[in-house]
Design a protein around this nucleic acid. Structure first.
Lengths: 213, 213
DNA sequence: CCCGCTATTGGACACTTGCGCAATATCGGC
DNA sequence: GCCGATATTGCGCAAGTGTCCAATAGCGGG
């Protein structure tokens, strides 16, 4: 294997780990799989990471962190707080990219047993809530939203979306993606004192009684 | 090991598997651990279950199914739909029994990779939502609730509670139990057209701005 | 050009995993 | 008391796990 600078190699390892995790899940990502993915020996991984927990945590941080940054950028662009929240909601419906949310499921379950992963997942979840809270405060300041408790509202919106997305990804059949979007939008509108339909997202009818899955 | 009837032995295996899962998680429950817990040989488990997936699924069904039945019983007793929903919410806060919810986290994550477990988790989740939906329809019929879409309302309430509970169990530090209860109650009240405080659960202040964790 | 630093190897180690199977023990019905 | 059904054993198998480490290879600075 070509020699690499420490920095580049660390990167390559995280990338490889990510590819594996995407296919087999965070919990089932092994040293040997990562090495095979890179085309290197397995010893190399432990030259850069103390523990497999660290590798997995780094891989998770890469995807989840990127999604966060991208959505944060979106927040910058859309000056309109309503558009920001709408964008936030639709960012949970990346068609054909269920694997990213599956990684969140893995992370939440494994958090109990993997300290490094727990730290990352906890930190990133907090960041998502904080971002949403900022958007809400913004909206309140601009008179677009009504919310006596932006922090609580942020966690409630985040939670309802997580809870719905979880059903979509874990048990495809129960709730489908358009139900999820419609319901999440409705919950957010109610939470922020918006008129029904304000947050409607593409691909989801926001009627009162969407067809059951 | 004393000889047992097929029925009793199956039961014993599921019980043992449950004890192990409670300690090590669903994903890390192994044939040998279960055998050791029962004080039997490992071959015995495979005499009753085709696959480890089946054992784990049966164990999960036992706990989660029991919780469901208990809450369903509670629904029978409390003639008052408001009391039913309140009971439902507080059933998510069994102090010191985080392990039960941790099993849900495990199940959701593993659902992608274990068909039998996915079937159980999917079915039970659906049952919870159906139960809640029935309570809501009841409340609407009695004029206690206002909801144009009981099915959607049920999934939204279930999801916000799952999403919040998930934060409590996976990352103890982010949201604490009283935040969770207060926020979930608030969301449910809003969803059902109830006055704030109607659903307040013991141990949770339902103020607009609960202290951050 | 060479040498030292270090990236990289590849296998050893001590376990653990799910599953299968021949042998054995133990029960209930006669 | 015997016997057939079956519950139970205990080990074998092939594969996989994280971690560690002595040996090797290859690059950059002198």
């Amino acid at each position: 294997m070509a020699r690499m600078s420490a920095e580049r190699r660390r990167d390559a390892i995280v990338d490889a780990a990510l590819s594996v995790a995407r296919r087999k899940g965070l919990a089932a990502t092994t040293v040997r799989d990562v090495a095979a993915e890179m085309g290197s020996s397995s010893g190399l991984i432990h030259h850069y990471f103390e523990t497999m927990d660290d590798v997995v945590a780094a891989a998770f941080e890469r995807v989840a962190g990127r999604d966060l940054v991208e959505t944060e950028a979106l927040l910058q662009d859309a000056g309109n707080p309503t558009a920001v929240v709408r964008g936030f909601l639709s960012s949970y419906a990346p068609v054909g990219e269920d694997w990213a949310f599956q990684l969140w499921l893995d992370a939440w379950a494994e958090a109990a047993r993997r300290p490094a992963l727990r730290e990352v997942s906890s930190r990133l979840n907090r960041a998502w809530a904080a971002m949403l809270e900022r958007a809400i405060r913004d909206g309140v300041a601009h008179g677009e939203f009504r919310s006596p408790d932006p922090a609580g509202a942020a966690w409630r919106i985040l939670s309802v979306v997580d809870g719905l997305a979880l059903q979509v990804v874990a048990h495809q059949t129960i709730v489908d993606r358009s139900d999820m979007l419609a319901w999440a939008s409705l919950a957010a509108e109610r939470e922020l004192g918006l008129a029904p339909g304000t947050l409607a997202v593409d691909g989801a009818s926001n009627g009162a009684t969407p067809p059951r899955a």
